[in-house]
Design a protein around this nucleic acid. Structure first.
Length: 342
DNA sequence: GTTCCACAGGAAAATATGGAGG
DNA sequence: CCTCCATATTTTCCTGTGGAAC
């Protein structure tokens, strides 16, 4: 029943992007000068999760590569490569210029020099989740290298601007800004429909079901496709001919649970104990968390470390914090369960 | 107001971990 | 198997903040 699993996977870039013509054209025109070996403005792409930021960025750069011979692209997820060194290393690695970097304590500025001296083809650098970068001045360094075009992807413009210094803000303000909104239900339906046509056999899922997925995903295309993938996978494992309403009912919850489980699995045993304490006793303040945690494990970490755990789990969206000072309390984030009911 | 204390989170030193090369 | 080096994690030390008791 699954014809092509790739098109349902996260990170898949389709042949045609639905409902994002304006944004695609906008971004393309920003990158246009690169086809004439000219420097380009930095592009900023913002929008909520699942709005298609990463997708159109990859789509546009791939199309650029089809049209023009002398262009390279590289994609860096700054959430995973959040240090200056890792990000630069990732870019150099994609350019194939890392041969002798690992050895010795290569001075970090050396990496920028290395990029500066890079005289290969023009390169488009996609910096995804750029607001997660611990040192955003990296953008400034890249910005000043004419042979690189930069696409910065972030959730919110403010999150990005609030963390960079003034000279960079003024340069970024003048750069081209592509804003993206959540998809409407109709648009999500079109996306789901296109994916299911390519990814699934015929009649595996009907229109009504697709609409319900679109509704449950609340404008988030990544979640919508995740739900579809989960449902299709389950139906396939259970040897159904098609996706039944029964399977679909649980798919949204399963898709969210899967995302959550992935985050949970990435926690260390100590972090997991802390998480369980907040889950079982929250909302609760840091002192009590640390007290309970110390009783629970053999070799407890310090309060400072536990605070770091809590802050990390807040970033991961596993916990949420209420209050700023002595009144700080942590709790499990309550996820509104999307309804896939008819 | 003033003082106190728990808290957040930065910086840097200390320590643990992992992976390459012997 | 061990050693060495780079990286990752943890601890130590710290400053600044804001609520609560006085």
């Amino acid at each position: 029943m699954i014809r092509d699993a790739r098109v349902l996977r996260a990170g898949f870039v389709p042949q045609e992007v639905e409902h994002r013509d304006a944004e695609v054209n906008h971004l393309s025109s920003v990158l246009e000068p690169i086809t004439n070996e000219e420097p380009t403005d930095t592009a900023i792409v913002t929008g909520p999760s699942g709005a298609g930021k990463t997708c159109i960025s990859k789509f546009v750069t791939e199309r650029l590569r089809e049209e023009v011979l002398n262009v390279e692209t590289t994609y860096v997820n700054c959430w995973r490569n959040y240090t200056r060194f890792r990000t630069l290393y990732q870019i150099l690695d994609d350019l194939g210029a890392t041969i002798d970097i690992h050895r010795q304590s290569t001075p970090h500025d050396e990496l920028v020099d290395r990029l500066q001296q890079h005289d290969g083809p023009r390169t488009v650098v996609i910096l995804d989740e750029v607001d997660q970068l611990e040192d955003p001045s990296l953008i400034y360094d890249l910005h000043s290298l004419p042979q690189f075009a930069i696409i910065c992807i972030a959730n919110k413009e403010e999150d990005l601007f609030s963390r960079v210094d003034d000279r960079l803000v003024s340069r970024l303000r003048s750069s081209e800004h592509v804003r993206m909104d959540k998809y409407h239900d109709e648009q999500l339906y079109d996306i789901l429909s296109a994916r299911s046509k390519r990814g699934l056999d015929e009649d595996v899922i009907n229109d009504n079901q697709l609409y319900r997925i679109a509704d449950a995903a609340a404008g988030d295309a990544r979640l919508a496709i995740g739900i579809l993938r989960t449902a299709a996978g389950k139906a396939d494992r259970e040897n159904h001919e098609r996706i039944t309403d029964d399977i679909l009912l649980n798919a949204a919850e399963d898709a969210r649970a899967q995302i959550k489980q992935t985050s949970l699995d990435s926690l260390t045993p100590h972090q997991r104990v802390v998480y369980d304490i907040v889950r079982d006793h929250g909302p609760v303040g840091p002192s009590e968390i640390h007290k309970r945690y110390s009783e629970e494990v053999d070799d407890p970490r310090t309060k400072r470390t536990v605070r770091a755990y809590l802050s990390k789990m807040t970033q991961y969206n596993l916990l949420e914090a209420e209050g700023t000072s002595r009144d700080r309390e942590y709790a499990i984030v309550d996820q509104p369960s999307p309804t896939l009911a008819e």
